[in-house]
């Protein structure tokens, strides 16, 4: 079943057209990755889904519902959980408060309590540091907190923007393992990554963006085997 649809979307920053008719879709339960160089429009795509950028043309649908006219905070309530680039941790709130904030729009009390147990089980480090201020966490812990926070909004689709950025190889592995686990528990994931190698390892399907256009699409295995992808993103 199509969960997220992105149809012929055009987005511009002033005179600069960042997305020139991009289309893709994400099925329920999938991990889909968007690959591409800097400036290809990957983050722009995620920000467009979240309602942070206006569309010039095209459609964005979540489970058939048009997201275009909704303000960003309502898009969250409809089920988009965005982990922004650079994590966006609230430095002066504790870990626990960071997570509590994400449950702001939810009305299912019992489920919230269960979700707290779930994320602390998924990220035991965060459980140990729940009274610590977000700003005092290490980079890897902050990334975990960002992911945990998005989980707490109980979105149907999680948008992950460069989760590996600035992390050590060990932590990158850890984060990707967790992403796989989150997906296995039923959250659909749209992953934007510079680290194409890791991304294609866990993704089911992928799209390659170049200067605001989709130039390649396929299953992760097909993309990993494609000579153009190999050359441009997997280092030969």
């Amino acid at each position: 079943m199509k969960l997220l649809e992105f149809l012929d979307v055009e987005v511009a920053y002033g005179a600069i057209v960042a997305l020139q008719g991009v289309s893709f879709q994400v099925e329920e339960g999938e991990i889909v990755t968007l690959l591409g160089a800097n400036g290809a429009g990957k983050s722009t795509t995620l920000r467009t889904i979240s309602g942070l950028l206006p569309l010039r043309r095209g459609e964005v649908r979540l489970g058939g519902v048009d997201l275009r006219k909704l303000p960003a905070h309502e898009i969250v309530a409809r089920g988009i959980a965005h982990v922004p680039e650079g994590r966006g941790i609230f430095a002066n709130l504790t870990v626990q408060e960071n997570l509590e904030l994400a449950t702001w729009t939810r009305k299912d009390k019992a489920q919230v309590a269960a979700d707290f147990r779930y994320v602390y089980e998924l990220f035991p480090r965060l459980g140990e540091r729940r009274r610590q201020l977000g700003g005092t966490l290490s980079g890897g812990e902050q990334q975990m907190l960002a992911v945990a926070r998005a989980l707490m909004t109980r979105g149907r689709v999680m948008l992950l923007d460069e989760p590996s950025m600035g992390l050590s190889p060990l932590l990158v592995k850890e984060i990707f393992r967790t992403i796989g686990e989150i997906n296995a528990r039923g959250t659909t994931i749209l992953l934007v990554e510079q680290n194409a190698h890791m991304a294609l390892k866990i993704a089911h399907r992928g799209y390659v963006l170049e200067t605001g256009r989709v130039v390649l699409a396929g299953t992760a295995a097909e993309l990993a085997a494609d000579p153009r992808v190999k050359e441009a993103y997997l280092g030969g």
Binding site: S50, L52, P71, G88, W104
Partner: peptide, 12 residues
Amino acid sequence: ENEIAAEMMGVD
């Protein structure tokens, strides 16, 4: 701290 992140948490 981060207006966009707050918005991404569903805060109006």
